[in-house]
Write a protein that binds this DNA or RNA. Structure first.
Lengths: 215, 215
DNA sequence: CAAAATTAATCAAACGATTGATTAAACTAA
DNA sequence: TTAGTTTAATCAATCGTTTGATTAATTTTG
């Protein structure tokens, strides 16, 4: 059966994802990846063609899990614009805080000028979520529940930027928060709910017209 | 005179800063740097000891320009907490949008696990600004002009995160904003004022108690 | 079925190229 | 001359990749 083969390729991709994430593309040697994965070096080229092929494969694997995430929330007619947005925030925070090291990897590679093929691919992945949020903002403005002079583009930058800031630079965010954010327990039990609450309060204050800020 | 020597060192640092920023530490070879700077490869080691020494020198040079930036605003007694914060935002946006490629470089290196010595140094640099903002938040809460349940840590993450998101991933933010953000004219004349306005409205809505959101 | 032929998977070893670093000689200016 | 710069040449180490050989699995053939 080719189950084992798939498992092995998947195992290599797991290891590669972590090492690329920790050391960057150039910093991660094929020897280190194959060594840590417990496979012969040549297997990387045998399976993935090249180092770049392996790198792209790490991304390809994740795309599907990103495509269908915030979908269908926007089409629910019975919810208010704000409730939909709040639900999106909850979903988003739940999801992105786990894929931690892949998120880091993605953000780092986005900031590198060369490898434009990869940049385009990542842009495409990220844009799905960006547009999903933007749609909600536009809808809320249109039906009058959100402020008309909302900067829908920069508020999107705030949503993703706040998350990235916490995830991408664990040193400084750990120092700021007074806890090691790589502590899974803290992340899941304390930080996640806190980010959700904060995000919703921030967005509500900025967006919603009849926002009662005493509540 | 050693003026020429300083100028040459400075020129090398300029080139190194740009190449490190574009390609990352591992991706930038000493040959590429020396080649583009128009100096012999051995000069890098002669001046800076090693590649890492050069890398650190790029940072050392910038530290001083970061130390004394938001200072003294917090100590002005005649301004309200909000006015001080608004002034800090203006100063901050004015400053960080120019140092563009160094910011990118700094943020990328912060997200890499090894090179902890550098991480600590960068953390130290960034913390100055973080603490400056935090002081203003705490003051505003203390004197009753800001909401008591303000999450001073996450709102700080939002300020820096929003900026980083725009600067670090020019591909996606250009796509989002409908303009190439590497266009200096657009950056200076359009984006800067827009970010300032947005940031202040966002923070005011979230922080200030008697915020009149019709204005 | 079993033997033969073919394909797939894995390995150690080595490849050429590039890396950061060093050397010793040449050059420059006081 | 002498001390400070700059250069070309060279170093060992490491990079990603390729090779040829070997084993395991699968398919084909009689």
């Amino acid at each position: 059966m080719d189950k084992d083969k798939i498992d092995k390729k998947d195992h290599i991709l797991d290891v590669a994802e972590r090492i690329f994430s920790d050391l960057g593309y150039e910093g991660a040697s094929t020897r280190a990846i194959s060594g840590e994965a417990g496979v012969n070096m040549a297997m990387l080229n045998y399976y993935f063609g090249s180092k770049e092929g392996l790198f792209l494969a790490v991304f390809e694997r994740k795309i599907s899990s990103f495509q269908t995430l915030l979908q269908n929330i926007g089409s629910n007619e019975s919810m208010s614009s704000w409730d939909k947005l709040a639900k999106c925030i909850d979903n988003y925070v739940d999801r992105i805080i786990v894929n931690n090291c892949f998120q880091k990897l993605m953000n780092r590679e986005m900031s590198i000028s060369k490898r434009s093929e990869l940049s385009d691919k990542i842009t495409q992945i990220l844009m799905v979520n960006v547009l999903e949020f933007k749609k909600l903002f536009d809808e809320g403005i249109k039906n009058g529940s959100f402020h008309k002079d909302t900067d829908t583009q920069l508020i999107t930058a705030t949503i993703f930027g706040t998350k990235n800031y916490i995830i991408n630079s664990p040193h400084i965010s750990s120092l700021m928060l007074g806890h090691d954010i790589r502590d899974e327990k803290f992340l899941e039990e304390k930080l996640k709910p806190r980010i959700k609450k904060y995000m919703k309060r921030l967005l509500k204050a900025y967006l919603v017209k009849d926002n009662d800020d005493t509540k």
